[in-house]
Amino acid sequence: MEKKSVLERLHETQDKEKEKNYISEQKASELLKENSDSLSHIYGVATFYTMLSVKPRGRYIIRICRNLACHLENADSVAEELKNLLGIGFGETTTDGKFTLEESSCLGMCSVAPAMMINDEPYGNLTPEKVKDIIESLKAGSKK
């Protein structure tokens, strides 16, 4: 087996950053020594993939699917409700650093559309009411 690739190291780096879910410039430079790539190459990789971020994000990354199967089941109204509840737009993080809202491509949950993921956990059959419950329980800290 080969040594870990830049992408794998970036995954690991971000996974360890549980509160802010991102890859800081400092952490990226540490990879530089180990993997002896140029910083611009590392940056190029980190910015290519939507699951990686070089900007600090929230504790909970909410990724809502906007693709066709979800679109057909009113994903737009769910997305609007999320924006209202959190008071942020796509790509933004709440001021308390708890939530980041992102648009996502198909999550492979189309049979239970509309769908979203919060960190590693998928949610489906969403309605504006259901996301309200989910967000409120996360705000109250009753879920992990």
Binding site: S5, V6, L7, E8, V45, F48, Y49, T50, M51, S105
Partner: peptide
Amino acid sequence: AGAYVCGEESALIESIEGSR
């Protein structure tokens, strides 16, 4: 890490190698 194009086999190989 979230890129549809990585389903294309040569892009997939680039990704396993750790690149864009």
